[in-house]
C-alpha cells in the first residue's frame, strides 16, 4: 500500500512535468503577444520590445521553460501579466471557494443522482424509471446559466430563502452547489441505475435473498456497496472538472472560484495564470484519481493494488 502510494506520487510528478511542458508549448505556439497587450495601444514598438525582454518572452523556448521550472521549484508561480499580482496569491484567494463549491456540488450530485438511480433500478421498466431517465437527460443537457438563474430567481429573489449570490456562509453555498448538483446528477443517476441492475443480477444477491435476508438488508448491505464502485471513479473525474471548469455558475452566483480566473486568463493569454491554474487543477486530478483508486479495493476487496 505504502509502496503503491509512493510509486503513484512519483508518477504524479511526471504527470505534472508533462502537463506543464504541454501547456508551455501551447502557450509558446499561441500567436498572440502578451507584451503588446500589456503595453497598450499608445505604446511604441520600442516599449513593446522592452516589455518582451523584461518578461523573457524573447528567449528561446527551452530557456523560458527552464526559468519557469526553476522558479516553480522555489515555489514561485510568477506574477500575472494583466492582474499584476502574484499568481500564488490569486489562486490562494480563490482555492478555498473552489474546494468548498466542489464539495457541495459533489454532495448534491450524489444525493440527487444516487437516489434517482436507485429508485429507477428498483422500479425498472415502470413509468417511474422512464420519468427519471427523462429527468436525467434534461439535467445533463441544461445550460448552466439557465438553471442557475432559475434557481436564483425562485429561491433567492422570490422566496428570499437564500442570498442573491455571494460567498461566505452556508446559505451562500446552497444554490450554486444545487445548480451543479442538478446538472451533474444525471450522470450519477444513469450510472447508478445500470450498476445496480448489474449487481442485482449477480448470484450472491440471489443467494442472500435465498438465505432469507430481508430485502432492504440485501439492498444496503450487499447491493448498493457493490454498485457504487464506478461512482467512485466518477467522483475522481468530477474533482478535476470542478477545479477550474465552472465558469458560468461562478459568475451567476458571484462565487469567487478559480474557473472565472482561468477563463479570463485563457482569453487574454495571461501565461502565468494559465500555467498556475493548469498545474493546480492537475494536482487535484491526480489526487482525486489516486484516492479513487485507493478507495476501490476497500469497496471491492477482490481488487488488488499493484
Amino acid at each position: 500500500m505504502t509502496a503503491y502510494i509512493a510509486r503513484r506520487f512519483g508518477q504524479a510528478l511526471l504527470i505534472l512535468v508533462g502537463i506543464s511542458l504541454v501547456t508551455f508549448v501551447l502557450l509558446y505556439l499561441v500567436p498572440a503577444d502578451p507584451a503588446r497587450q500589456i503595453a497598450g495601444r499608445s505604446a511604441t514598438a520600442e516599449t513593446v520590445e522592452n516589455i518582451r525582454n523584461q518578461l523573457g518572452l524573447n528567449l528561446p523556448f527551452y530557456e523560458q521553460y527552464g526559468r519557469y521550472v526553476a522558479a516553480l521549484a522555489r515555489g514561485d508561480l510568477g506574477r500575472s501579466y494583466l492582474q499584476k499580482t502574484q499568481v500564488s496569491e490569486l489562486i490562494a484567494s480563490r482555492l478555498p471557494a473552489s474546494l468548498l463549491l466542489m464539495a457541495g456540488a459533489i454532495v448534491c450530485e450524489l444525493l440527487i443522482g444516487l437516489t434517482m438511480g436507485l429508485v429507477a433500478a428498483l422500479r425498472r421498466g415502470t413509468w417511474v424509471d422512464s420519468s427519471l431517465m427523462v429527468v436525467s437527460f434534461v439535467g445533463v443537457s441544461a445550460p448552466q446559466f439557465v438553471i442557475g438563474i432559475l434557481l436564483l430567481y425562485v429561491f433567492a429573489v422570490q422566496l428570499g430563502w437564500f442570498p442573491i449570490g455571494g460567498y461566505g456562509t452556508f446559505r451562500h453555498l446552497v444554490l450554486p452547489a444545487l445548480t451543479l448538483g442538478i446538472l451533474g446528477s444525471g450522470w450519477y443517476a444513469r450510472m447508478m441505475r445500470s450498476s445496480m441492475l448489474d449487481v442485482l443480477r449477480q448470484d450472491y444477491i440471489r443467494t442472500a435473498h435465498a438465505k432469507g435476508l430481508k430485502g432492504w438488508k440485501v439492498l444496503f448491505g450487499h447491493a448498493v456497496p457493490n454498485a457504487i464502485l464506478p461512482i467512485i471513479a466518477m467522483i475522481g473525474i468530477d474533482i478535476g472538472m470542478f477545479m477550474s471548469g465552472i465558469v458560468v455558475v461562478e459568475a451567476v452566483f458571484g462565487w469567487p472560484g478559480i474557473g472565472q480566473l482561468a477563463w479570463q486568463a485563457i482569453q487574454r493569454i495571461d501565461i502565468p495564470i494559465i500555467m498556475g491554474v493548469t498545474l493546480v487543477s492537475a494536482c487535484a486530478i491526480v489526487i482525486g484519481n489516486l484516492v479513487a483508486d485507493l478507495v476501490a479495493p476497500l469497496i471491492d476487496p477482490r481488487i488488488k493494488l499493484r
Partner: peptide, 11 residues
C-alpha cells in the same frame, strides 16, 4: 490523468 488535466480551451 495527464489528458484529464489537459487545457482543452487553450488548445
Amino acid at each position: 490523468d495527464l489528458m484529464m488535466s489537459f487545457p482543452a480551451l487553450l488548445l
